[in-house]
Write a protein that binds this DNA or RNA. Structure first.
Lengths: 130, 130, 130, 130
DNA sequence: GTGGTCTAGACCACA
DNA sequence: GTGGTCTAGACCACA
């Protein structure tokens, strides 16, 4: 029973939220290579969204080789390395953009550095000890 | 003659690009309280975009009290403090989101810290000496 | 007025037919860098299919950087080189598979070679001279 | 003991893989007229697939008169000529389609001809000497 | 006008 | 049961 939740009020599309959340679950090890994902219909029902929306997310995840489809059987988690490379690239790029914007708007380095530090000091709300 | 440039191919809407660029010019001091902005039509022509798009940007900037309109005279730059507070809030918030995403995806603190450092070490190509 | 036609009876999905046909038109030079493609709705009407189907084709073409989208304006043809590389790769790969299958099934080299020759001797039905 | 192997991750349906592989074994002479094929259940077990899937493959092979069923006894290999004609037709047709696509996409004749030559120069890894 | 997302629901092939 | 394609039609942001 995986924990995928979506925020219907977010401006980011539902299918993207699903993509990100599944990537995240693989990144932190809650989903492992070969694990079966919930079927399109099951996940759609659980999330209260249309199957097409889940289908779109799964199709994109497969295209990125983050998951793979076995016809008639379902979708399965691919290798963590594949996700890792892509996710790191994307996240670091968006982090970089945010930092550049901060710098270009005269926000002091120290402010940014402190903020990052604090984020990493926080518990992420999922039961991390320490 | 202000230098506002937009990237028509970017996925971020043109009107937002205008908002961000004007905010930035105020933040770094290239635009000062009371400076007159180009008229909607002038800027639209210069940028090669639809006047409605510039109008939308100006309207939003006015709504945020970053600029003000004197009817019959034009649009003028508001007080830097007003922009500063808003821009900082927005930028730091998006920086925070990026950092949280990085942390949630098991990207090490050191990687993020180093990236931020490097960004601030770069010259931003807009006339910083050194 | 571009000539995109689809075969509703083909087993290959409509959206793939659209993708292939547009790639082809770029490859042979009938569509050039910067050319505007018909809008999603227009093409859908012309082909007698649902706009979602065209949307899916365009989205995939954009993902492959064969076309690009300018928000609010439409879809435009990208650089021929990008298409060329991808299309060649795909076509030669499928050609290779077909040749391997022929060889593995004891079909003589000469039969295959002659067939390929004949195909290239044919006029392709679009008015090529010679 | 015939060597039929399937790739469960392939996009081509398992039942089709079985059909093609059995046809191939007949074409190269590893299966001869009158040879007994493994039973549906045996083959299904060996391949780790659902018996329905093997059943579907056998049914289609019988429909094409490539194999025949003796009720109560099992399935047997038909005459090589029957397979030969069909397989050649299919393979040459798909080869033709690939060649036409290549030509329509401005891929030079020489490129295609060389590719075919090379394929036939390769050892196919199934025990050809030299 | 443009493209992007989404729901509701059908139909198909495959296992 | 599984995923893939498609229609019909709505709603939204953007130019």
């Amino acid at each position: 029973m995986i924990l995928i939740r979506i925020d219907p009020y977010s401006r980011s599309p539902i299918y993207e939220q699903v993509i990100h959340r599944i990537s995240e679950l693989i990144m932190v090890g809650d989903l492992k290579n070969g694990d079966k994902l919930p079927s399109v219909r099951t996940l759609a029902r659980d999330l209260g969204v249309n199957p097409n929306t889940v289908q779109k997310a799964y199709a994109e995840l497969e295209r990125r080789r983050i998951i793979y489809t076995v016809s008639g059987k379902g979708n399965f988690v691919g290798e963590r390395d594949v996700v890792s490379r892509q996710v790191s690239d994307r996240l670091l790029e968006s982090l970089r953009e945010a930092a550049v914007a901060a710098r270009n708007n005269a926000i002091p380095y120290q402010t940014v550095a402190t903020l990052v530090e604090r984020v990493y000091d926080e518990t992420d709300g999922e039961g991390k000890d320490e």
